[in-house]
Amino acid sequence: MKNVRLLCAAGLLAFGAVNAAAQILIGQTAGMTGSVAASVNETIGGAKLVIDAVNAQGGVHGEKIEILRMDDAFDVKRASENARVLIEEKKVVALFMSRGTPHSQAIIPWLDKYDVALIGPSTGAMVLHKPVQKNVFNVRSTYQREAEKAVQHLLTIGMTRIGVVYVTDSFGQDALEGAMAGFKKAGATPAALAPADREKPDYASIVPKLTAANAQAVVWIGSGLAVVDGVKALRAAGSAAQVVTLSNNASSGFIKQLGEASSSVIVTQVFPNERSIGQPMVKEALSLARAKGQNELSPAALEGFASAKVLVEALRRAGPKPTRARVVAALDTIRNYDLGGLEVSYSPTDHSGIDFADLSIISDGKFKR
């Protein structure tokens, strides 16, 4: 076993020893620091449950999986550059669990240039589903479905004055389209529409739009601290509107950041209840977590767990000494792969993976369904 290589260039974080021999190198760029760090690091923890367990059993075809991680701090340009470094310089076999819609879009040119698979991007952007991206393999439902379900739920329970706050990037526009589809199907319109800058949301202009409309509910489309600060600003203005946000905020860290403002916030979910041990996947994940002294999972951790299961299955099907091309080809053969009560399927014309959406509400510091 060679000594651990310190992979520090461009913010590279290598977790665990990187052995030059008999290892499968997988790359990841994501915001391990910055506004989405809480949920990103929970997805990483969930993925490690799978990868550590597989490596403890000797790896895949006798080779251990090593994840080379680079922190992009949720910056689009850094995500693109990190992908280049991982693909061109580190020679990874595949990329895994990028975070963010514009960030994942920025990676695609590198994927297509070198025919490298990106497995389980942590985004539900429709642009990664349709038209099909030949090298992107999703392991979660779309934001459009989540946003549409959120609006339909609010209208069903009698809330007619619904405001929508949406971040002004490709993620926000994508999810907004889903929300508007929910309004259209019900013959309704939003009481207020408030765009929010991704870097510096102007709550002094956003919140008054919502309060002036006397919004009964707000669908807040944004990420991490931007939503946390927005909800707090809304409450400080005296609004008791029901807040709904999407699964990109489904982390324990998001609840902690909200603090007292977390009570009754609804968060859409794209995986089964993380405490439902009747679900085989959840039972397996909890068992592995408890073996490491962790008594609970978050939805974000479960997303990481599911994505890592798909990664391992792709490597298994790709055979010994997997190449980039064999990993892509292996993923396209996955049909009805059972993660444990939830199936994943791909084909050359459909890389959506899973179609599942649910709602949870934060109560007593936990997601409840």
Rank of each mutant, 00 (worst) to 15 (best):
Q242H: 14
G222Q: 11
L234P: 07
S223G: 07
R235N: 06
I206L: 10
Y203T: 07
Y203N: 04
V231T: 14
T245W: 02
G230K: 01
S239Y: 05
A240F: 01
L246S: 03
A212S: 14
E199Y: 10
A237K: 13
G222R: 11
A215V: 12
S205L: 09
S247K: 01
S223Q: 10
Y203V: 04
A226D: 12
Q242I: 09
K256A: 15
A237Y: 08
A236M: 10
D202L: 10
S247T: 10
T245N: 12
V207Q: 08
A215Y: 02
A261F: 06
V244Y: 04
A194T: 09
V218N: 04
V228K: 07
Q216L: 01
A226L: 05
D229P: 08
S223F: 08
G230R: 00
N248E: 14
A215T: 15
T245G: 00
S239T: 00
E199F: 04
G253V: 07
G253D: 02
Q257H: 07
Q257I: 02
A213M: 03
A217M: 12
G253Y: 03
L225A: 14
A213Q: 01
D202W: 00
K232N: 09
A204I: 00
T211W: 05
T211K: 07
A233G: 06
G222N: 14
G222W: 09
V207S: 08
K200F: 11
A250S: 15
I221N: 03
